[in-house]
Simulated assay, not measured.
Amino acid sequence: MGARTTHLLPGVLAALAAATIFGLIANAVHSGAPITQLDVQLAQWFHAHATHGVTLAMLAITWIHSSWGILSMSAVGSGWLYRRRMPDWLLALIATVPGGMLLNVAFKHVFQRARPHWDAPLLTLETYSFPSGHTASATVLYGFVVCFIAAHARSRQHAVLAAIAAIAALAAVALVALSRMYLGVHYLSDVLAAVAEGCMWLAICMTALAAWRRWRIEEGEGA
């Protein structure tokens, strides 16, 4: 890898690592590895310990992070980037979030895993289970926000803000994943694979953005 492309190495490695984790989880689910037994045990535990108040809170979290919720938040971010005249980041957001959501739909149809089944379900969905769309969408959206803040950190205060944003993003994604398991529509392996999938796609999009911005700079210098 040449000197002009070494700055892309972290993103490439991150994408490969996330893809490897996703592949391992997918293979474990396909082969019926022990994680699938843990899937069932956790699903049964959540279902047995559900309470009215917690269920309402989890329904609110899952509703906010539905496809329309994620797309609405992305639209607000897109409008902000447009007003700030950041076309590169605007295109990156469009590729990252809607693109990641489409990738998730493709994966669901590849694996076609049935969702958990309950006699008295808290929530009923007819789509496939693996990987979790809500969790993947939250991963790419909040991950994009963290990447944007980190890329524009120009001081120690900004670096602290980026660290806080990263912690908040991790907490938000974990909460979304928990809501999907609690509501009985996903297994543990579904949400873990979704996080890996989201990180992989985010790394690909951020690496593409870095390559595009570097190319534009070099073209400008060569003009």
Rank of each mutant, 00 (worst) to 15 (best):
N27M: 15
A28T: 02
A28P: 02
A28E: 13
H30T: 11
S31F: 01
S31C: 05
S31V: 05
G32T: 04
P34V: 11
P34E: 06
I35V: 07
Q37N: 10
L38Y: 06
L38P: 09
D39L: 02
D39F: 00
V40F: 04
V40K: 08
V40C: 02
Q41F: 08
Q41T: 12
L42F: 15
L42Q: 08
A43M: 14
Q44I: 01
Q44P: 03
Q44E: 04
W45A: 13
W45I: 06
F46R: 01
H49Y: 13
H49C: 08
A50I: 06
H52Y: 14
G53Q: 12
G53S: 11
V54A: 03
V54L: 09
A57C: 03
M58C: 06
L59G: 05
I61V: 09
T62Q: 04
W63Y: 15
I64C: 06
I64L: 12
H65C: 14
H65M: 14
S67T: 11
S67H: 03
W68S: 07
W68D: 09
G69E: 04
G69Y: 01
I70P: 00
I70Y: 00
S72F: 15
M73K: 01
A75F: 07
A75Q: 07
V76Q: 07
V76T: 09
V76R: 01
G77H: 02
S78M: 10
G79C: 04
W80K: 02
Y82S: 13
R85N: 07
D88V: 14
D88H: 13
W89I: 00
W89V: 00
W89Q: 11
L91I: 10
A92I: 12
L93S: 02
T96P: 08
P98N: 05
P98V: 01
G99R: 04
A106C: 15
A106F: 14
A106R: 04
K108P: 10
K108E: 13
H109C: 10
H109R: 04
V110T: 15
V110H: 15
V110W: 15
V110E: 15
F111W: 12
R113F: 10
R113G: 05
R113A: 09
R113Y: 07
A114Q: 09
A114N: 02
A114L: 11
R115M: 05
R115Q: 05
R115S: 03
P116M: 08
P116K: 03
H117A: 08
W118M: 04
D119G: 05
